[in-house]
Design a protein around this nucleic acid. Sequence first.
RNA 1: GGUACUCUGGCAGAACGGUUAUGCGUGAGCCUGCAAAGCUUAUACAAGGGGGUUCGACUCCCUCGGGUACCUCCA
Length: 462
Amino acid sequence: MKILDTLSKLEQGVDTSKKVKIYLCGVTVYDESHIGHARTIIVFDVLRKYLESKGTEIEFIQNFTDVDDKIINRASLENKSAEQISNKYIENYFTDFDGLNVKRATNYPKATEHISDIIQFIEKLIEKEMAYSTKNGVYFSVSKFSDYGKLSKKKIDELQSGARIEIDEEKKDPLDFAVWKLSDTDPTWDSPWGKGRPGWHIECSAMSIKYLGENFDIHGGGRDLIFPHHENEIAQSESYTGNQFAKIWMHVGMVTIEGEKMSKSIGNVKSIKHVIDNWGPNIIRLFCLSGHYSKPIDYSEELLKENLIKWRQVETCHYELIHANNENGENIDELIKKISNDFDCALEDDFNTHLALSSFFQLVKESNRLAADEKLGKENVGTIKTELKRMLQILGLKIPEISNQEKNEIDELIKNREKARTEKKYQDADIIRDKLNEMNIELLDHKGQTIWMRKEKIKAEK
RNA sequence: GGUACUCUGGCAGAACGGUUAUGCGUGAGCCUGCAAAGCUUAUACAAGGGGGUUCGACUCCCUCGGGUACCUCCA
């Protein structure tokens, strides 16, 4: 598999013959997760599911930033401890992402649980004279790291002319950033430099190296993290180890809302709760995968609706396959093989989920075409089913299960409707159909048989 | 202002230096007792503006313009 690396700007191969180690910068737990978080996390979810489906072992580490001024502010605002706030939003995170059918990471390390690792990390930076302490805290000395700016393609002298740099007389250079902040406001920890808390970037350096080693395969996150977060991580980590940090930097584009950027001040932040409630997990996942991961994607009713229609086709396909029993099926093994191969090739080539989705929908269309032509024979159903199942699994899409009891009930009602129809009692037949509709069951009248489909209820559809 | 990314038909979104993307939408048809769903078929002949390289550019280069993100410990 090849991934376009932000640092080298080249497509770099991922060695999938051995365990692949991935570190994803997760969320700062001070508020609800939104559709932007969902996109990044879903992209990485599909990446790992694809690699796992190929038999590659994945170690997937995703952090929670649970020390941050935003958390502290929120805590004082709500009269709670920082821990209460972060715990609340961690719990919230899992509710949201379980709801989106995201597989849990191997581990979710938290900054607060790695303070000693962080202190040890900082000590070594000081020892190497890459960091120094002042009366405000410990700072990383940017000028000592000659490659500073290599990820974000920024030049140090240009950065210095930036207007928003805080004036801190204690710092040797305005670009230097805190790795340890001295503070008396909780939460605080003791350190060789005094009571305080870690800076923002240091946790990811310390934790990624702790769990994945000095030189792991993929480091990911949203594009907005390139600077300063990932730039600083590189500076700290490579100073610490003396080696190359992540092999590949993979950054996911932003989600805009109806063409505008998503921001609290505009008030257009779409929480995951909101989007799941309105569209359900499958459509959100399709939406998040509908563009190339590196490019921005625009959240709009129109696009969501388009994905809804596509999802309906998938549902139809699934139920047609369940009921398929035509006598003379068409052999399409070769075609399925090609679609399957195209799907994989798309993902292998810089993880192009949009192209992979077109293969997926091609499979769905092909299957639905055969069903319409009554050529969905018992022999070819197996091939399609297997392939569909494989793709659904990788994409993290799920068609809800139905209990046998419910199935029997449905079959019974359909039988009654068929009876009414043959007797031309159409009013009676329609009453039964309406009743089934209320159970979210739609009927499909084929020539020989009526089949039923449980369509996911989508609030936004009405 | 700087840096990065980006700009393809009504919308979304690909490939490729010379050939139809594809999907949604829209029109027509099939199926149906009627619907719904599904299927078939038709439809866009597009490349932000301007230059250049080339026999030929959507694809390479320059330039102008639009968009998005970031520009530091924190609004």
